[in-house]
Design a protein around this nucleic acid. Sequence first.
DNA 1: CTGCCATGCATTGGATCCAATTTTCAACCC
DNA 2: GGGTTGAAAATTGGATCCAATGCATGGCAG
Lengths: 213, 213
Amino acid sequence: MTVATQRVADHLRSAILGGHIAPGERVRQEDIAQQLGASRLPVREALQMLAAEGLVEHEPNKGARVPWLSMHEVDVMYKMREQLEPLALAESMPFLTPGDLLRLDEIQEEIETGVDVESFMSLDREFHLRTYSACGIDQLTNAVTRLWNSTQYYRRAFMQLTGPSRRWVVNAEHRLIIDAVSRRDEVDAGRFLAGHIRRTRIELRRHPEVFAE
Amino acid sequence: MTVATQRVADHLRSAILGGHIAPGERVRQEDIAQQLGASRLPVREALQMLAAEGLVEHEPNKGARVPWLSMHEVDVMYKMREQLEPLALAESMPFLTPGDLLRLDEIQEEIETGVDVESFMSLDREFHLRTYSACGIDQLTNAVTRLWNSTQYYRRAFMQLTGPSRRWVVNAEHRLIIDAVSRRDEVDAGRFLAGHIRRTRIELRRHPEVFAE
DNA sequence: CTGCCATGCATTGGATCCAATTTTCAACCC
DNA sequence: GGGTTGAAAATTGGATCCAATGCATGGCAG
């Protein structure tokens, strides 16, 4: 079961995260199967996984499609991030090596060179998620990753809309977080991280045109 | 796909939550299929869903089994609950009807009659989860429900071990929460709820014999 | 008697096939 | 001309079948 199913699930996940399958769009089993040279069966199993992750919706006899999220839904998901990510960072803190800290710095330096939207999205994602994975608690990292995945489309739409104008705020916040993590100050780190997420949420709310309805 | 798969998934979920399939136990596809009078295919798809929910682990060519959780994992999951459930309650608060509040009171009264472990588990679950579902944000209620599901086995083992001795603490905390919710005081309600979960977590940590290793 | 290897059984992984439902599109009636 | 109804095509749901992998038992050699 697993090998083909896993391949298909990974493919579909990155297709959705990459914006190649947009909200509202239907995912036909046969299409994906041919595209990957597999039968429909692994595709169906992969779709069940993605449905459980919230990346697709499944209606009986109608198939799978990527769901639209309302602004309110995304807003609440950002509030969830605001609660969970400081916890994830605190749980990871004891396991972060000097090498991890160096990598954080590298990522941030690259972000500050003023990369394009796609590169920024990928680097920003790594900046946050790689840090959390050190805690080793799958249930926690999975929950956070799911929140990132489900909201990725709207984050991209927002950034394409606003451009890199307020990128300097992100940089300042990231630097504060890096600094606190380096000092192993989990209270400060959590505070800065929560503030960072909170500010992003508020800014996102200023652009309702990104969402459904 | 969905009707049979959903049936199988629901069946397996309640079998695991009911303790009829314990951690470490293997879930054979053929067994479940015969048990429900279906073919193996819906079973396989249901197992993918449960795997994504964390209720089973899937190893290639070896099949699915219910995973053991370490004390540390459960501890972190309780910390996640401590973060998420106050948020869920706050988001639900505006949508709670007088009827909902009445139901909360009913449940708590029944708990206070001194029911057995199984009834308590079910009533306690309803007390918490039904409240949150009013918020209407699937991503939030699902996340919380998953945390309850994954830790249910250890909660039951803990209660069977300690008996109803400290049930009065739960009752007092529930009453505080009900009262705050009735007053529509989301700050107090969140505080009491977080404290309730936190105390449970600490007490659970006193019984390492419940966990793996 | 013990440890290793091989053969056979059980279980899972994947593909193909058929039935059921939905969707599309066109003809027809108002 | 627009809306409704019908049938055909497309798509999904479910079952059966075959291959591949893992596990256990038993035989053989040391």
